[in-house]
Simulated assay, not measured.
Amino acid sequence: MSNQNTNDMEIDGINPSQVDSDYMIALLAQQQELEMSGNQMMNANDIANFKKSFREYQEKNKNISSNGAEGNSGCENDEEIARLMQENYIREQEMYNMLGCNGQSGYPASNQNNNPNKISENLKDYHTSELQKQYHERYVKEKLSHEYFRNKLNSNEAIPIKKQLRDFYIDFEQKTKSVFTSPQEQSQYLREFLNNLSRTIIENPLWANSEREEQENAIIEMEKLITKKLFDITFGPSEDLARDTLLSHKILMHSWVEPRHLDLPDFDFHIFEKAGNELSKMNLYRFYIDKIICIVNCIKLIEYAYRKNISEEALANDKLLSLLIFVILKTNPKKLISNVQYIVRYVNPNYFSIGIYEFSLTSIWGAITYIEKISQTSLTITSEEYDAL
Score class of each variant (00 low, 15 high):
residue 129 S to D: 11
residue 176 T to H: 05
residue 64 I to S: 06
residue 169 Y to A: 09
residue 185 E to P: 02
residue 133 K to V: 04
residue 110 S to D: 10
residue 97 N to L: 02
residue 78 D to M: 07
residue 92 E to Q: 11
residue 118 K to Y: 07
residue 163 K to L: 11
residue 141 K to I: 11
residue 97 N to C: 09
residue 149 F to E: 10
residue 107 Y to L: 15
residue 144 L to K: 01
residue 137 E to V: 13
residue 106 G to R: 02
residue 80 E to D: 13
residue 160 P to D: 02
residue 84 L to I: 12
residue 64 I to P: 00
residue 181 T to I: 06
residue 107 Y to Q: 10
residue 126 Y to H: 14
residue 90 I to M: 06
residue 87 E to Q: 06
residue 70 E to K: 01
residue 147 E to T: 11
residue 181 T to N: 10
residue 139 Y to S: 05
residue 136 H to I: 03
residue 185 E to I: 06
residue 82 A to S: 08
residue 171 D to F: 08
residue 160 P to H: 00
residue 68 G to R: 04
residue 120 S to K: 00
residue 81 I to L: 13
residue 72 N to M: 14
residue 150 R to L: 12
residue 57 Y to T: 05
residue 137 E to N: 11
residue 157 E to C: 04
residue 58 Q to G: 01
residue 153 L to M: 12
residue 83 R to A: 07
residue 70 E to P: 00
residue 61 N to S: 09
residue 149 F to N: 10
residue 98 M to C: 13
residue 98 M to K: 14
residue 82 A to M: 12
residue 104 Q to W: 09
residue 178 S to W: 01
residue 181 T to E: 08
residue 115 N to G: 08
residue 78 D to S: 11
residue 169 Y to Q: 10
residue 118 K to G: 09
residue 164 Q to A: 15
residue 80 E to N: 05
residue 170 I to N: 08
residue 121 E to Q: 10
residue 85 M to D: 04
residue 65 S to V: 08
residue 69 A to H: 07
residue 137 E to L: 13
residue 173 E to H: 03
residue 72 N to K: 08
residue 165 L to P: 02
residue 176 T to L: 09
residue 60 K to A: 05
residue 170 I to V: 10
residue 78 D to W: 00
residue 66 S to G: 00
residue 77 N to H: 03
residue 102 N to G: 14
residue 78 D to E: 12
residue 155 S to P: 08
residue 152 K to H: 10
residue 122 N to S: 09
residue 168 F to Q: 12
residue 151 N to G: 08
residue 170 I to L: 03
residue 97 N to E: 13
residue 59 E to K: 00
residue 89 Y to C: 01
residue 183 P to R: 07
residue 78 D to C: 04
residue 125 D to M: 01
residue 133 K to Y: 12
residue 115 N to R: 05
residue 159 I to V: 12
residue 145 S to M: 00
residue 145 S to L: 05
residue 182 S to P: 01
residue 83 R to H: 00
residue 131 L to W: 02
residue 109 A to D: 05
residue 140 V to D: 07
residue 95 M to Y: 06
residue 115 N to C: 07
residue 132 Q to E: 14
residue 69 A to F: 04
residue 171 D to V: 03
residue 175 K to P: 13
residue 154 N to F: 05
residue 81 I to T: 06
residue 132 Q to M: 09
residue 67 N to V: 03
residue 137 E to K: 14
residue 176 T to S: 06
residue 89 Y to I: 11
residue 178 S to K: 01
residue 74 G to Q: 04
residue 116 P to E: 00
residue 176 T to C: 10
